[in-house]
């Protein structure tokens, strides 16, 4: 994944943010993977009427990726997105 992809997902690489940049890349990869596995072709892995942990398999699968996707957004918020860019120079 390139710098510009990381920027697309909210990170701006500056000299003091290498760690944040790296974390942003990993979170981006996890988020894309969650999309492919959750509502994407990954759903075919559990496409059965048989339940998982008592829940319909497809719904249980959805819950898993819901937790991952929301977790990634929270991680972006807490660790990656800058909080010092609230104003812009005119």
């Amino acid at each position: 994944m390139t710098d510009s992809t990381a920027e697309t997902l909210g990170e701006t690489p500056t000299s003091d943010s290498k760690k944040r940049h790296k974390l942003g890349l990993w979170l981006s990869i996890i988020f894309v993977a969650a999309l492919i596995l959750g509502p994407g072709p990954g759903i075919l892995l559990v496409n059965s009427p048989k339940p998982i942990l008592g829940l319909p398999a497809v719904y249980a699968w959805g819950l898993l990726w819901y937790v991952v996707e929301v977790g990634v957004v929270i991680a972006f918020y807490r660790c990656v997105w800058r909080s010092d860019d609230g104003e812009v120079a005119n």
Partner: peptide, 22 residues
């Protein structure tokens, strides 16, 4: 039940609020 997974579009939209919105 499958369509409950439609919910997974919402975090994508949430991410866009910052990524595009900012």
């Amino acid at each position: 039940v499958t369509l409950a997974l439609f919910s997974l579009n919402v975090p994508v939209a949430g991410l866009s609020v910052y990524v595009l919105g900012s």
